[in-house]
Amino acid sequence: MADRQAPHGAPWRQVVDHEVDGEPLRVWENPAQAPQGPSLVLVHGFEESWESWRPLTRRLPAGLRLFALDLPWRSGSRHRWTDGGTSTTWLERALELLPVHPAAVVAHSFGATTQLDLLTRPTPFSAVPTALVAPVYRPHDVPVDPRFFGEAVDRFRGVLADGLRAQMGPRGATVPPDIVESMIGKVRERVEPHGFLQFYATLSRTPHLPLNLVEAPVLIVSGTHDVSAPPSAVDELRSSIPDVRVHQDPALSHFCQLQQPDQVAEQLLGFLTELGLHHSDELHHTSKEAISA
């Protein structure tokens, strides 16, 4: 399968292209310098893609073997994938396609919530150390009522718009605002209502996850002003997951893996070091000059 060259890093290559009920599951790999390096698996969020991890992975050690999953809730999807199972079912299927058992998982937003759900279930992946970046979570004391539904719609639309802007990066500043709004409108036309229903169902059931069953070490990285995981939600996660460490920073956006990758990489490397999967003297995939380019 064809290699694709990252702008400032090692080439990624597609290693799995699998289909279930007409829905593709793909795995991309960025090999480690050492063939037996620890494997880190990346799980993207709603309306994102495996490429959303590029800014972060350019800051990770070359000794890590990186795998990025391409999942049914990818950008461009019509979001009818629940005919073939829940997001947790799809994630487990994708993990089963990996050529090696993951040493750790890093998941963002909707993907993070899906990974958290998977950690509560009896699967071969339930004990895999996990970093949850900006997870979507609803605390117990937030009732599912008409007000919550309306807020969820607004939040969903806000995340879609913010995600599009984040993925545009610096070039977004050169695009006229009316063009950006038109692009956001087209995304909403495609994603709603099926996509919102999946998002809403996931958000509604998070308080019922048996988080006391999570055996894996967990890191949570999020912004204190991120409405998808407000401080009350993170506090509940902190008190419910047995082995958890939390880093919250007002400077982090919901799409911090794209917009503040240095801060996220610092927290992730500290977590991996604690797990014995990284050593501070390891080389990174790119130089500081490449990162700042």
Rank of each mutant, 00 (worst) to 15 (best):
M1K: 09
D3A: 12
D3M: 09
H8P: 01
G9F: 03
A10E: 10
A10Y: 06
P11W: 10
Q14S: 13
V15F: 10
E19W: 04
D21V: 06
V27T: 11
P35C: 09
P35F: 08
S39C: 13
V41I: 09
L42A: 07
L42P: 03
E51V: 11
S52T: 13
L56C: 05
R58T: 05
R58L: 11
G63V: 02
L69P: 01
L71R: 00
R74F: 12
S87E: 04
T88C: 14
T88Q: 10
W90Y: 10
R93C: 06
A103Q: 13
V105H: 10
V105Q: 03
F110R: 00
G111S: 06
T113D: 02
L118M: 15
L119N: 02
F125G: 01
P129M: 02
R138S: 05
V144N: 06
P146T: 10
F149E: 15
E151I: 02
R155D: 12
F156P: 01
R157M: 08
A161T: 14
L164I: 07
A173T: 10
V175M: 10
I184Q: 01
G195H: 00
Q198V: 08
A201H: 07
T202E: 10
A216P: 08
V218L: 03
L219V: 09
T224R: 11
E236D: 12
S240P: 06
S240N: 10
R245K: 13
H247A: 12
Q257Y: 04
Q259M: 12
P261F: 01
L268M: 07
F271A: 00
T273L: 09
E282K: 08
A290T: 12
